[in-house]
């Protein structure tokens, strides 16, 4: 280990001299990542509305109490949990199925993979607009167009967004996130030790047994990763809710509510408190999702 070789005394000074050029980057890292959050924490305990700046002062837990008791905010907490959990779970399951399919060799596999990734590349606002207008629109949307094409002029022409608003948002997000999950799981499948699989087949294992006792335990790490990253980003989702329903019809999630509190009501203190709640919530959801996935697998590893 040559790095540990230099003798003590001169060693320490020389080591720091060599590292010096990289230190500014590190100091920035700490300052830039953590200070804004500390500021948010502090503001969350203040009474501060930019429309009434003279009333600024310490508010104690008032903002948190407001966040928890306000029925709008409470329902947006519930919506966030529901939205995140269903998008992560559905896109993980779909992604797993597609990854298993793409793990087999067949002609056109590369093309299918490229086409599958496409939704992930669409600018999220464009994707949200696309779902809202091109697919869901009752008069010229694709869904009702297909219904007409199949069942003729008398086909039902539902207004998708107003009859099932949250489902509409979830479907759009699942469409965008399934390719991401699929890619992570496909990487997991392709790093699976092939000889163990072959040995199992020779010993007479069925395809399902191989999946359950070999593939699934191996994929655990990748399922966890997909669940974690997915939760982080979907808890933060703003574009889809803002575009598809403008937060109406009970689809306002916490990021949207924070935006409203901050940008329209100018209540900095309450927006910050809601922000802190989002962070705590995403940590909770992420760890819950992780535990759910690993407990599913733990039984089967035995």
């Amino acid at each position: 280990m040559p790095t540990q070789a230099p003798p003590k005394g001169i060693g320490a000074a020389a080591r720091w001299a060599r590292r010096a050029p990289l230190l500014p980057a590190l100091i920035f890292t700490i300052a830039v990542t953590q200070l804004p959050f500390v500021a948010t924490l502090i503001i969350s305990f203040l009474q501060w509305n930019s429309l009434a700046p003279e009333n600024r002062g310490f508010a104690g837990l008032d903002n948190y109490i407001a966040v928890i008791t306000d029925p709008n905010l409470r329902s947006s907490v519930l919506t966030t949990v529901l939205l995140t959990a269903s998008v992560v779970l559905i896109s993980l399951l779909l992604g797993l199925g597609i990854a298993l399919l793409l793990d087999r060799k067949f002609r056109g596999r590369g093309l299918v993979r490229t086409m599958m990734i496409a939704p992930f590349l669409v600018v999220p606002v464009a994707a949200a607009l696309l779902w809202k207008h091109a697919l869901y629109n009752p008069e010229y949307g694709l869904f009702n167009g297909v219904l007409k094409w199949i069942f003729g002029e008398s086909a039902a022409q539902p207004d998708w967004i107003s009859t099932m608003p949250l489902t509409a948002v979830i479907a759009a997000l699942v469409w965008q996130w399934t390719p991401f999950m699929m890619l992570i799981l496909l990487a997991g499948l392709q790093s699976r030790p092939q000889d163990a699989v072959e040995a199992a087949f020779i010993d007479g294992a069925t395809g399902f047994q191989v999946f359950r006792y070999l593939t699934l335990p191996h994929l655990r790490q990748y399922l966890e990763l997909g669940g974690l990253l997915g939760s982080i980003y979907i808890v933060q989702n703003f574009d889809a809710v803002f575009t598809i329903t403008s937060g109406g019809l009970g689809t306002a999630n916490l990021p949207y509510t924070i935006y409203q509190t901050f940008y329209q009501a100018h209540d900095y203190g309450q927006a910050s408190a809601a922000g802190v709640v989002v962070v705590i919530g995403s940590i909770l959801i992420a760890s819950f999702a992780l535990r759910a996935v690993s407990s599913l697998l733990r039984d089967e590893v035995k």
């Binding site: 948010t40 901050f262 900095y268 989002v278």
Partner: peptide
């Protein structure tokens, strides 16, 4: 800290 920062939604630190 870096991982924690990654998990921080942009809306949360938007106010300060």
């Amino acid at each position: 800290l870096v991982v924690a920062a990654m998990m921080l939604p942009p809306q949360v630190v938007a106010v300060p």
